[in-house]
Design a protein around this nucleic acid. Structure first.
Lengths: 127, 127
DNA sequence: CTCATTTCTTACTATTTTGTTAGTATCTAA
DNA sequence: TTAGATACTAACAAAATAGTAAGAAATGAG
């Protein structure tokens, strides 16, 4: 839970009020959100599929991040009244508007990894 | 300092190894990095100018985030041997390659804020 | 009635990030 | 010699985020 009056929380609020980048970071930040968004970009998935597909995530974290994404209007939770229960998660329309941003981020991430590998290779060559 | 063997740290590493988005988030994430990058995008600035211009940041945080950006090769630290000391920070070439990504993030952030305000207005209208 | 399955909760602990406060070093000018 | 300016550092404390382990609800099958 967040302490609304901590300097920490106030600082974050101030930055978010003045900087679009910070808004975006707030929504897609968090350890597992990139992994979740990657997967839901392609197809809706049920909870257990996400869990299996994201190695290392705990149920608590998966639920927590899905809930946050839902609260932000990025994913939708669809419950099928069956037994055993079935719950599917899908990207919303607002979620789709993140496409270009996510794409740009993924692309830059790849670029950086490439450059990093080159640099490592050069350093090895120097020895 | 990070504990290299914590589950937490290992999870982060695994995600970064498999997801470009996570790489990007790791580099530009952190409370104050967006604010710093916005400012340095326009012009080089000295330490004290950054401090004055970013309301609420402490010196410890400013230095820490600048150091991280420097280590990642995003900004360059230029020291002028004068008294009193003068240190300027500027975006590197690699830093410039983040342009499209940062732009996409800022744009999406603005979009979301707009939609949010509309939604609030509608909710008020319903009452 | 008991089991199995799926989708979560809850309580607790560990780790990481951020903030606070009080310094340090250097030289110049008064 | 003392104060002032600039750019930091270090030690500690608070807050936020992430991980672990156990259990709960719903219900059809056996």
């Amino acid at each position: 839970m967040r302490k609304q009056t901590s300097t920490n929380a106030l600082n974050e609020k101030r930055i978010i009020d003045t900087c679009g980048m910070a808004v975006a970071l707030r929504v897609i930040g968090g350890r597992w959100k990139p992994a979740i968004l990657c997967r839901l970009a392609d197809s809706t998935m049920r909870y257990s599929e996400l869990k299996k597909s994201i190695e290392g995530i705990s149920e608590r974290m998966l639920v927590a991040q899905l809930r946050e994404l839902e609260r932000e209007g990025i994913v939708r939770r669809v419950v099928y009244p069956e037994v055993p229960p079935r719950v599917e998660y899908e990207i919303t329309q607002l979620g789709r508007t993140m496409g270009p941003m996510l794409h740009a981020m993924a692309e830059w991430g790849r670029l950086r990894s490439t450059l990093n590998e080159q640099r490592s290779a050069e350093q090895l060559a120097e020895v």
